Measured scan of single mutants.
Amino acid sequence: DWREIAKLAEEALKKQQPVTVNGQTFNDPNEIKKLLETAQKAI
């Protein structure tokens, strides 16, 4: 669910920690931002 992904990505950016989505881990803040943008577009 994109809403859940957006929430996870936002928290990861705030806490500056990696986030795992669908078994894929994102460590890079730039990648997390991209993930968040993608999720927000999909909602």
Rank of each mutant, 00 (worst) to 15 (best):
N27E: 14
D1I: 04
K14W: 02
V19I: 14
K41L: 08
Q40K: 15
N30A: 15
A6N: 00
Q17S: 14
E31N: 05
R3I: 15
K15S: 15
A39C: 06
R3M: 14
A42Y: 06
G23V: 00
A42L: 10
N22F: 08
Q16C: 11
K7F: 12
K34F: 06
K14D: 11
E31T: 09
T20W: 08
G23Y: 01
L13W: 00
E37C: 03
L35D: 02
L8S: 07
T25E: 10
K41W: 00
P18Y: 03
D1V: 01
F26D: 03
K15Y: 07
A12S: 07
K15A: 12
I43P: 05
V19L: 12
T38C: 12
K33E: 11
N22V: 05
K33M: 11
P29M: 14
Q40G: 07
A6M: 13
A9T: 07
K33W: 04
L13F: 03
L8C: 08
L36S: 03
A9Y: 08
N27I: 13
T38E: 14
I5N: 02
P18M: 08
E31H: 05
V21E: 01
K34Y: 04
I5D: 02
I32T: 03
P29Y: 13
K15D: 10
T25V: 15
T25K: 10
E11K: 07
E4A: 04
W2N: 05
I5G: 01
K15Q: 14
L35Q: 02
T25M: 12
V21M: 06
T25Y: 12
Q17Y: 10
K34V: 13
A39P: 01
A42W: 04
K33T: 11
K7G: 09
I32Y: 00
K34P: 01
A6P: 00
N30G: 14
A42V: 12
E10G: 05
A39T: 05
L13G: 03
K33N: 09
K14I: 14
L36N: 02
P29R: 08
Q16M: 14
K33C: 09
Q16E: 13
E37K: 04
I32W: 00
W2Q: 05
T20C: 08
L8R: 10
A12F: 02
F26I: 15
P18C: 09
Q17H: 13
N22D: 07
I32R: 00
A9N: 01
E11H: 06
Q24N: 11
R3W: 15
T38Y: 06
N22Y: 02
G23T: 04
F26W: 09
P29W: 10
T25Q: 13
Q17V: 13
T38M: 14
L35W: 03
K14C: 11
N27M: 11
T38A: 09
A39W: 00
K15E: 12
A9G: 03
E4H: 04
Q40H: 11
P29G: 07
G23N: 08
K33Q: 14
V19T: 04
K33F: 06
N22G: 11
I43R: 05
K14S: 12
W2Y: 08
I43V: 11
E37G: 04
I5E: 02
I43A: 08
K33G: 09
K34A: 12
Q16P: 07
D28P: 07
T20D: 06
E10Q: 07
V21G: 02
L36T: 01
V21N: 02
A39R: 00
K7P: 00
V21W: 02
A39G: 03
I32F: 00
A9I: 15
K33V: 12
I5P: 01
L35T: 02
P18T: 10
D28I: 00
F26G: 03
F26K: 04
D1W: 07
K41V: 12
L13Q: 05
A42Q: 14
A6C: 10
E37P: 00
T20Q: 10
E31W: 08
A39S: 06
K7E: 09
Q17C: 05
Q17N: 09
G23I: 00
L35S: 01
N30R: 12
L8G: 04
I5T: 05
L8P: 00
L35A: 04
T25R: 09
D1Y: 11
V19K: 01
F26Q: 04
E11V: 06
N30Q: 15
E10S: 07
P29F: 14
E10L: 09
G23W: 00
T38Q: 14
T38H: 13
Q24W: 02
A9C: 13
T38N: 12
Q16K: 12
K41I: 13
Q16Y: 10
P29E: 11
K41P: 03
K14A: 15
